[in-house]
Design a binder for these strands. Structure first.
Lengths: 219, 219
DNA sequence: TGAGAGTACGTACCGAGGGTATGGAACCCT
DNA sequence: AGGGTTCCATACCCTCGGTACGTACTCTCA
């Protein structure tokens, strides 16, 4: 019916000078983006197992033939959605962090931004909840290490070297701390008063981190 | 073939005085337990979506008719498996904790036991990984609050009242701390040297908690 | 410029798997 | 002793992920 290919002839000879890509390629990437968009929305609302590909293609106004032309499987579709969401949020956080140079301030800013991002249903559902199960714990962790986990890793390393003397715990510390932040974000997202909960959580984490500064040695 | 009902007649008239339950009821609960056992094993190995009911009933040497007689759905079967695993591990931890009265020592013992329990594939896969997605985040959290989360809640409350002055953060603190422990358990379970990783993690958490003692006030 | 190659889909179908309907054998109760 | 209930097997249905294949459109190159 309203398929893009049907209107090709009416506007055919205009382009080809301004844009390097052909109209056909534009259509292709457009339908691919439409598939990713509708999949993102549906995965966010109903989870991975809860959304059927029929729903996805219907929302994108194409058929399964189109979907399987762009993505080899449902899992691959999800992985693309996952990475796209993850990438955008990671960029947000890194941008926020870059405004400061002091490791403690960067940690503070990053934490605040992360708690904020985790309240967005997309990131929460797709990257935090469905991701590990759909992709498998291993693949998910791999992707995480390259994204938000990596940011935390860097922040923690800076903190620990700033403190001095506890570098040997870096890995374990990052793991524990990242879990604390994740849980904190869920707590905030579930709270009836997210702003107050966010304040409480930040106070808690600051208290825990602040305690570290007072420790002469660890072990 | 080897169905229990087939051997009924050969051993029929012996019971009924020693046990209150009929032989038929014994058989019924036995097949139910067999279904739960095989389902537990398969869910542990292949996850919720990855195991088919055909596999479950085949492993339990029954048919889908039997399964759907005892459980109304696949999800209900999983929930029963989930609760059974959760209950047993909770009992383990509570038993270990009960050996001490000092809140800091109890926290120490409980943490150690929890990290140990989280290395068991059953609890790890079913309760930590598949649980939240299969049951839904809400239902999972509800069950958690009544189980291991509840234990942590109690321990944290004891710690904070022992410290004094930071009770208003109790809820948030528990949430953050519980996430830290969960992540710690995954870190330990994934590590190539779990014992060393467990030591690192415990040192980290002790450091974070120990820092709290040095804080005069929080906020 | 037009014919073959490649792209971007649509349509029809298959098989696996969750769930249901039905029936029957064993058991319980009165 | 006969009906009701429990416990389970068999056969079937339906959804949904995935595949096979057809087709309209576009690009390339002789």
């Amino acid at each position: 019916m309203s398929h893009p290919a049907r209107v090709t002839k009416t506007v055919l000879r205009t382009a080809r000078k301004t844009s390097k890509t052909s109209r056909r390629q534009d259509y292709s990437s457009s339908t691919k983006r439409a598939l990713l968009d509708s999949a993102t929305a549906l995965f966010t609302d109903h989870g991975y197992a809860g959304t059927s590909l029929d729903e996805v293609v219907a929302a994108a106004r194409v058929t399964k033939g189109a979907l399987y032309h762009h993505f080899p499987s449902k899992l691959a579709l999800f992985e693309n959605v996952f990475l796209r969401v993850q990438e955008s949020t990671t960029a947000d956080i890194e941008k926020a962090i870059s405004s400061s140079k002091d490791p403690w301030e960067r940690a503070q800013i990053g934490l605040e931004k992360f708690l904020e991002v985790c309240r967005e249903p997309q990131f929460r559902r797709i990257c935090m909840q469905e991701g590990p199960v759909a992709l498998g714990h291993e693949r998910w962790q791999e992707a995480e290490k390259a994204a938000s986990y990596g940011i935390v890793q860097g922040a923690v390393d800076d903190l620990l070297t700033d403190l001095g003397g506890v570098e040997q715990l870096g890995e374990a510390f990052t793991a524990v701390f990242y879990g604390a932040i994740r849980s904190a974000s869920e707590y905030v997202a579930d709270a009836e008063d997210p702003d107050a909960a966010s304040d409480d959580v930040q106070a808690t984490i600051s208290a825990l981190l602040g305690g570290l500064r007072l420790l002469p040695t660890v072990g």
